[in-house]
Amino acid sequence: MALSSIFGGGSPSQQQPVASGSATGVSVKEQLKTQIAQELAIANASELVNKVTENCFEKCLQSPYTSAQEGCVDQCLAKYMRSWNVISKAYVGRIQQASTSGEI
């Protein structure tokens, strides 16, 4: 399973081409929404990786490297992933609530 599929993205060959014409106006709008959502998911995943690298590795890894530092990195990564999951679920819930109430 590729990372892009985990985070909602896809390769260009997997993406549907955008149709033209007035009869497909709704379809084009939905395709654009999907493409934007995929690009945002990839950007969010990249940001997560950058922050994990920046914070966990700076906190835990010192020169010279020792195997004792692995536990610190593992704990830091686990904390980031738990936080990421909690925030993502809350964000998706709020978007769904706003969507059903007509705010979006």
Rank of each mutant, 00 (worst) to 15 (best):
V26E: 07
Q14Y: 13
C60V: 02
L3A: 14
G71V: 12
L40Y: 10
A78G: 03
G21L: 01
V86Y: 11
K33M: 10
E39I: 12
I87V: 11
I42Q: 03
K33W: 12
L77Q: 01
P64I: 00
S20N: 14
Q62R: 12
V49Y: 05
S99E: 06
V18F: 08
L32Q: 15
Q62E: 05
G102M: 00
N55G: 06
A2V: 10
N55S: 04
S20C: 07
A98P: 03
V28Q: 15
A98W: 03
N44G: 07
V86F: 13
R82G: 04
S13K: 13
E39W: 15
A2I: 09
Q14E: 13
I6F: 13
K51V: 05
K51M: 10
T66R: 03
L32C: 15
V52E: 01
V49S: 13
G21F: 00
T24D: 02
Q35T: 08
Y80I: 00
S46F: 05
S83W: 06
E47A: 14
T53I: 02
C72K: 00
Y91V: 09
K33V: 13
E103V: 08
P12D: 01
F7G: 00
Q38R: 07
D74F: 06
L77A: 01
E47Q: 15
A78V: 03
N44H: 07
V49D: 03
S4L: 08
I104Q: 03
A43E: 06
Y91Q: 12
A19D: 14
G93D: 15
A98K: 04
V73I: 08
C56N: 00
Q75K: 07
K51F: 10
S22W: 14
E30K: 15
A43D: 05
T34H: 11
F57E: 01
Q97A: 10
K89A: 07
V92Y: 00
S20R: 14
G8K: 00
Q35N: 15
E103L: 13
L48D: 02
